[in-house]
Simulated assay, not measured.
Amino acid sequence: MTERIECVVIGAGVVGLAVARQLALKGREVVILEREDRFGTGISSRNSEVVHGGMYYATGSLKARLCVEGNPELYAFCEAHGVDHRRCGKFIVATRPGQVETLEKVLARGLANGVPGLRMITGAQAVAAEPRLTCLAALQSPSTGIVDTHGLMKALLADAEDHGATLVLRSPVLGGAADPEGVRMEVGGPEPLAILASEVYNCAGLGARKVARGIRGVRADALPPVFLAKGNYYALSGPAPFSRLVYPVPEAAGLGVHLTLDLGGQARFGPDVEWVEEENYDVALSRADAFYAEIRRYWPGLPDGALQPAYAGIRPKLQGPGDAEARDFVIQRAADHDVPGLVNLLGIESPGLTACIALAGHVLGV
């Protein structure tokens, strides 16, 4: 027997939950299918938990627009729903003369993107604010902050459920096919079932391309390749040296080994970029060796042996190793892949957390 459902969201990470919430707020019938035994176990639980400002992304891109729009929307949601967060601010620092020009380019891009309060300060001004810091100049971003990602997802889910959405765990989508009435899907798990959905929102994160490929009718050439960029994080033993986030100038495929804080004040460093073929979340102590030299460019006082393995995350990148050109979020509809009712969200990496509420609104035309 096939169960008919109006809207199915695949994936209960932060983006899937934000999309489900927005659908529920519109009065739609919503079922969220999550393959794991709890929500938010993938990308959403393995990141820096940073609320980004939006200065890194190409002007006019979805990443830039949705990050700048999503930043205040996320803070407002957290305030309204009691989600722990802190607008601690961030310094992006130049430690070598050639990097000051890079900072100026980031500033120009950020201003073009509409990032509020962004300004260049001298090295002396930065050190006056953060005495343990060493730099020639810094870009100050007051809108950057940190958020309890689990608390955010819990609040998004609660709001969605309060408006009628249903979360079904241990329900992997095994395959599907285009149908004149929507999208047919085979769902596995302890209680397998067949679903006919009028609308399907594929928010499966690292598995989004695989899910899309498993739906018959989707043109294979419509799906861009996805590359897995593993990022390793290391915790600092001892008190945090800074009161705000500190980032080096951005690098290819990432933002450099930066210092972030959790809401308890614990400092951690990362992520680096390690290209992998499959999911693997082991963090080798040996990889920390390369972190010390990078961190000491802006914090010379980092003690030997102070970094301990913390966790790793994997970003689904649409740019591969050696490709310096950043790729934008990809949101595909029927015109892109030939399956009416199916929306694929591909390459949703940073700043997906910051942009989640704005991204949900964009997907649903709100």
Rank of each mutant, 00 (worst) to 15 (best):
K154Q: 13
L152A: 04
T149I: 11
L156G: 05
G176D: 03
G145M: 13
G176F: 09
L174M: 14
T166M: 15
T144R: 04
V168W: 09
M185T: 05
V187I: 15
K154P: 04
E161D: 01
H150G: 07
S141Y: 11
P180N: 03
H163C: 12
C135G: 06
L169R: 03
L174C: 08
D148I: 12
T166F: 14
T144H: 06
G164Y: 10
G145E: 09
P192K: 02
P192Q: 08
T144Q: 02
P142M: 12
V168A: 11
A138R: 00
D159K: 05
V187K: 06
H150K: 08
L169Y: 10
L156K: 00
V183M: 11
L169C: 09
L133W: 01
Q140G: 05
D159Y: 03
P131N: 03
A137I: 12
K154N: 06
D148G: 06
E191M: 09
T149M: 11
G189D: 05
I195M: 11
L169G: 06
A158E: 04
E191H: 11
D159A: 13
L196G: 02
L136W: 06
L133T: 00
D179N: 07
S143M: 15
M185R: 03
A158C: 11
A177M: 12
C135K: 01
A165K: 08
G189A: 12
A165H: 03
A165C: 13
G176Y: 02
R170V: 13
V168S: 05
G182C: 12
Q140N: 03
S143N: 04
A165M: 15
V187Q: 05
V183H: 04
R170T: 09
L157Q: 12
L133N: 00
G189M: 14
G151E: 02
L133K: 04
L156E: 02
L193K: 12
V168Q: 08
V173F: 14
R170F: 14
K154D: 12
P190N: 04
A155T: 03
K154S: 13
G151Y: 03
T166A: 14
H150V: 11
I146F: 13
P192H: 03
V183P: 05
S143C: 15
L139V: 11
L196R: 01
T166R: 14
R184V: 11
V147G: 06
P192L: 15
A165L: 13
M153I: 14
R170Y: 08
G176L: 01
T134K: 09
P190A: 12
V173R: 01
L157M: 15
E181F: 12
L133Y: 04
V183K: 00
L139D: 00
L133S: 05
G164M: 08
M185W: 04
P172Q: 03
T149L: 13
P142K: 02
S143T: 14
V147N: 02
P131I: 15
G151N: 00
H150L: 15
G176Q: 05
L157T: 01
D148F: 10
A138E: 00
P142G: 13
